[in-house]
Amino acid sequence: MKSSLLNFLQACLNSLRDLLPIVFVVAFFQLAVLQQPLPDFFNILIGLLLVVLGLTFFIIGLEMSLFPIGETMANALAKKGSIFWLMTFAFCLGFGTTIAEPALIAVADEAADVAAEAGIILANADAKESYASGLRYTVAFSVGFAIILGVLRIIKGWPIHRIIIAGYVLVVTITFFAPKEIIGIAYDSGGVTTSTITVPLVTALGVGLSSSIKGRNPMIDGFGLIAFASLTPMIFVMIYGIVIGG
């Protein structure tokens, strides 16, 4: 009991250390550059305490649950030997984790505003709503597709850089045909799709899968799923922009 309490305190100290840079940056800009007092000092202190505790619990829970879940699932599915179920799982995981992602919902709503302002869609709530949800399904679908592609790559042992380079070529090519208004959003949508819970799960899935398939190296083949999940949304969102705007 005593040692686990010590471990917890140690983990809290680590979290505090991880947060110090932000505290320092914010304090410096507030006090030295903008030369304003810190508002509501007490609230900030409570907030920081919550952040430290939160980070600590997250890291402890990560090693207890998300990593083992992802890896045992990958092992079990690989043992079962059914490519169909593995692919279905990959797609569900990508689609399911993305469709509910709060950052994506926010970006999709802003994108609908942009489209309405540019006159691509009607500037009423209904048109915006359907544009935004269309965009969300597009991104979620593209992440599902990305995880399928990534899992297929692990099974076949394809070198990752060929797929990524092909993806880049596609992104740059499609950019020339896409409506100007959608480009910034499309590029950003690659980054916002991967949330704090998705990343550990997907990483554990890749590493687990590549360690249970003979001849795969977890370091070379296990990573890369997130990279696909950040690349495909750019392509699909621009295509969505062309289809809707064209």
Binding site: I22, V26, Q30, L38, P39, N43, I44, L45, I46, G47, L48, L49, L50, V51, V52, L53, G54, L55, T56, F57, F58, I59, I60, G61, L62, E63, M64, S65, L66, P68, I69, T196, I197
Partner: peptide, 26 residues
């Protein structure tokens, strides 16, 4: 697994709350 998952949720919740309170507005 259950406890670990609960920790993950609890951690994220406290983390987001703290950020909303301390860092994001500032």
């Amino acid at each position: 697994l259950g406890i670990g998952f609960f920790y993950v949720l609890l951690g994220l919740t406290l983390f987001l709350m703290g950020l909303e309170k301390a860092l994001f507005p500032l």
